[in-house]
């Protein structure tokens, strides 16, 4: 199975529906691991004393850390993974668990405030639109999701529009 009109219809039902998720407290270990994986040795991301000398409460996350993390929960059971390994329940609501291939197509990010380890973050997500596109491999759906990340006080940390390709 690939994407078809039924998948498109299911996805289009999600357009405009807002999902809010408490992502939890951003740990220093997680942000340090993220910076290490990227290969960024900036002490602002690794050295709490250095970050504090610049006025931050703890190490700071690289700017695109929040949208870079795909899953904030413990992860889905294996029988809730799509064929491509992505999680059917927490990732792309409305998209069937089997047969749909998912790829990132790009992102527009606005970095409102630095994300400091220890911050408790929530995310509001809404599917903006779904555009069908005919390709050599058949029908492809281009879905655009808007994400807004806020801290426990409701202050915006980052907002983004990400493009997801489904086929």
């Amino acid at each position: 199975m690939a994407v078809d009109d039924a998948v498109r219809t299911a996805l289009e039902r999600e357009v405009g529906v807002e999902h809010e998720e408490l992502l939890g407290e951003i740990s220093a270990t997680l942000t340090r691991r993220y910076a290490a994986a990227v290969g960024d040795s900036d002490p602002l991301y690794h050295d709490a004393a250095y970050a504090k000398s610049l006025g931050y409460a703890n190490v700071v996350a690289p700017a695109n850390f929040l949208p870079g993390v795909i899953c904030w929960s413990e992860g889905a059971p294996y029988d809730r993974l799509r064929e491509d390994g992505t999680e059917a329940d927490t990732h792309l609501p409305g998209v069937p668990a089997k047969g749909v291939r998912v790829m990132g197509g790009g992102e527009e990010m606005h970095f409102t405030r630095p994300v400091v380890a220890g911050t408790v973050v929530s995310r509001r997500t809404v599917l903006l639109d779904v555009t069908p596109r005919d390709t050599k491999q058949g029908l492809m759906l281009v879905a655009r999701y808007q994400d807004e990340y806020v801290d426990e006080g409701g202050q915006e940390l980052l907002r983004s529009v990400r493009t997801v390709l489904l086929r």
């Binding site: 997680l30 993220y34 290490a36 994986a37 993390v69 904030w72 992860g75 993974l81 992505t86 999680e87």
Partner: peptide
């Protein structure tokens, strides 16, 4: 490592 740090299971 990037997949692991971001829990990207693709």
């Amino acid at each position: 490592r990037y997949s692991a740090a971001t829990w990207n299971t693709h």
